[in-house]
């Protein structure tokens, strides 16, 4: 189980004015800017649960994942992952945890994947039989068997991501942090990764936190969603509740001579608003829909509540 209480993280960075003058000035005096990446985060996740952590760029998703995986120390607050304090980095904790970052390579670039796996087998002390089963299971499920003996740097982006997934899951982690695992992948590779993650989740039941900018990842994998905005959680609940939240709203997609826009209106006012739209604009096209999950989440990220 993951338990997080009042977790905060502050980063400082230097700010430099643009241009050569700014560069010279920064050699002698620099402005330091402080950013609160996480503000009093509280979270509870049960064993076997998979949650989707979503938010705009810079909202604090990756910072939270880095703290829970033990890479970064928090400024204050408490966190316990299966009874371990992550940033103490005990070997026992690290043997049960995996972090996959879509934008970072963790396997060795100059060697075939199987060479990296052999080292990981020793590092994680994976019994020979379990190692053999896992390599076969993961390679089959991810359809990457033929690429295991090729230098990792010579693989395509999608193939490398599959290798990263394999490397991270060889030791059957009980906690998995997935930070944008489908970023940059083509549609079929995204589908393959999602299918694999669903199979893995149902077979091994780890705690999984997934961040992604692709709503398909969230919709297919995460029954529970946490939305983070500027370092604070603004929504923590089920994905279906998000859809239900907006049950009394309709979204009008309108195309006029000048522009295309969307507007949310209460269901009871639909007739009146539609009439007004036709009266005030030269409407070329009108589409009336229930709000999509994307619309609702975007609205929550922007306003902290559902669409207006």
């Amino acid at each position: 189980m993951i338990l997080v209480k009042d977790l905060r993280k502050t980063f400082t960075s230097h700010v430099k004015e643009p241009g050569l003058k700014g560069s010279i000035k920064s050699l002698f005096s620099r402005e330091v800017r402080t950013k609160e990446a996480l503000k009093s985060i509280n979270l509870e996740i049960k064993q076997g649960e998979i949650i989707g952590l979503i938010g705009a760029n810079g909202a604090g998703k990756t910072t939270l994942i880095k703290i829970l995986s033990g890479i970064v120390h928090p400024t204050s607050g408490q966190a316990s992952v299966m009874g371990f304090v992550p940033w103490e980095r005990s070997n026992e904790y690290r043997r049960q945890m995996a972090l996959i970052m879509g934008q970072k390579n963790q396997v060795w670039w100059d060697l075939p994947a199987l060479d990296s796996f052999l080292l990981l087998k020793e590092i994680y002390q994976i019994p020979a039989a379990q190692y053999k089963y896992n390599v076969e299971f993961l390679a089959e499920t991810l359809m990457i068997k033929d690429q295991l003996k090729t230098q990792v740097r010579k693989l395509s982006l999608g193939e490398r991501m599959k290798i990263e997934l394999m490397a991270a899951l060889l030791h059957n982690p009980k906690v998995i942090f997935l930070d944008e695992p489908t970023i940059g992948l083509d549609i079929s590779a995204q589908k393959a990764v999602r299918l694999f993650l669903r199979q893995y989740q149902s077979e091994f039941k780890p705690i999984t936190i997934l961040t992604s900018h692709y709503m398909e990842d969230i919709k297919e994998l995460c029954p529970r969603v946490v939305i983070i905005k500027e370092g604070e959680f603004v929504y923590d609940g089920s994905l279906s509740s998000i859809q239900r939240m907006m049950g009394d709203e309709k979204v009008l997609s309108v195309t006029t001579q000048e522009k295309t826009f969307k507007v949310s209106v209460p269901r009871l006012e639909l007739s009146q608003k539609t009439h007004e739209l036709f009266k005030d604009n030269e409407v070329l096209d009108l589409n009336i829909q229930d709000p999509s999950v994307e619309d609702v989440i975007e609205s929550i990220m922007r306003n902290g509540v559902g669409p207006s």
Binding site: S69, G70, I71, L99, K104, I123, Y124
Partner: peptide
């Protein structure tokens, strides 16, 4: 480059 992260994840 941030690739130092990998060594913090491995139990060693």
């Amino acid at each position: 480059e941030g690739t130092f992260t990998r060594y913090l994840l491995y139990p060693l």
